[in-house]
């Protein structure tokens, strides 16, 4: 049970006003998310900005309310967390937040943040012992000990990320969500941090959801790739297939991969088509899809493609891909 994630039919809407949130515009952020992670997997979640990656991570940790048939993380039912269950769950699942600049309280030293993370679930640990633990953690994430006595605003970006990462590791979690843990750093440091992250994950045999929009980094660490577009998972493939064998199937994944490794193509004369309205039915990518045109292919405009398996372990949400697969 530990280290597994099961998500079935997860929906999340933001907005809504009035006494019970009944009125006003609601924006769907996540729609019909389905996937499972096994213990020890390092899955990457990629997708464009605003596609709902962070929101999904927050849902998985029970930080925001959502609707679903079933969401189980480490065996805990997230929708009905409470009391002792919640405490145990908080210890077993952690998140490294997207913005390290504001995810540390600027009023307290880095050391205090880590001591708190260690003592929060077991207040009987003495301060001295917690301090020793903190120094071990700092060594684990390769943070110089003297940096621990600084306030967060005077730490560099990379140091802050190490602190945040150490904080997430403090409770020995079985499942960690890392939300763009290395964005905004220079490439050698990125590589170093990612390598560290992967090593720690292997050693503790924990499950990790690695959120990113940089496929070059993903190729470096992930064992599995989940592609999100406009609040839906459109492709779920093993990294082996995605990067090395036949490549991704969904047109959006192909575009992502191409732009990651041949960014020069992005600068050609390109017609920027806007996406259709959210929740209006049909494939959300159809306006930019290279393989289909909206008028002719009726299903793309009217029917939302379901996420279906086209090969073992490889699922895609695309009418065109399924037709291709059937033709073959």
């Amino acid at each position: 049970m530990k280290g597994t994630v099961q998500v079935e039919h997860l929906y999340k809407e933001f907005g809504g006003s009035g006494l019970f949130g009944k009125w006003g515009d609601k924006t769907p952020a996540l729609e019909d998310i389905n996937f499972t992670l096994e213990k020890g997997e390092l899955a990457a979640l990629v997708g464009e900005s605003g596609s709902g990656k962070t929101t999904l991570g927050r849902c998985l940790l029970g930080l925001i309310k959502f609707e679903s048939r079933k969401v189980k993380v480490n065996g805990y039912d997230i929708a009905s967390l409470g009391g002792a269950d919640e405490k145990a769950f908080r210890m077993s699942a952690q998140m490294v937040f997207q913005n390290p600049f504001s995810s540390l309280n600027p009023a307290f030293k880095a050391r205090d943040a880590l001591v708190e993370a260690i003592r929060v679930h077991d207040p009987s640990i003495s301060r001295e012992k917690a301090n020793d633990e903190v120094e071990k953690l700092a060594a684990l994430v390769q943070l110089p000990i003297d940096r621990l006595n600084e306030y967060p605003p005077s730490l560099s970006g990379g140091e802050k990320r190490r602190v945040v990462f150490a904080r997430a590791l403090a409770t020995n979690p079985d499942f960690v969500v890392t939300d763009e843990p290395v964005s905004g750093l220079d490439q050698p440091i990125q590589a170093q941090l990612l390598d560290l992250m992967r090593k720690i994950q292997r050693r503790q045999n924990s499950t990790m959801l690695f959120i990113s929009h940089d496929l070059r980094l993903v190729r470096f660490v992930a064992t599995r790739v989940l592609v999100m577009h406009r609040g839906r998972i459109v492709e779920d493939a093993p990294a082996e297939i995605f990067f090395h064998q036949q490549g991704p199937s969904h047109p959006y994944s192909r575009e992502l991969l191409e732009s990651a490794f041949h960014p020069d193509q992005l600068f050609g004369p390109q017609v920027q088509q806007s996406h259709p309205e959210r929740g209006s039915g049909g494939c959300s990518f159809r306006n930019r899809c290279k393989f289909t045109s909206t008028e002719m292919d009726q299903p793309c405009a009217t029917m939302t493609p379901p996420l279906l398996e086209i090969k073992s372990n490889h699922r895609v949400a695309c009418h065109w891909c399924r037709n291709q697969e059937a033709d073959r």
Binding site: L61, L63, R90, A93, Q98, S102, L104, V120, R167
Partner: peptide, 13 residues
């Protein structure tokens, strides 16, 4: 809205 509030929450504080 500061992210550290949510971070503390997810730590179980």
């Amino acid at each position: 809205a500061a992210a550290f509030i949510e971070a503390e929450k997810s730590l179980g504080v």
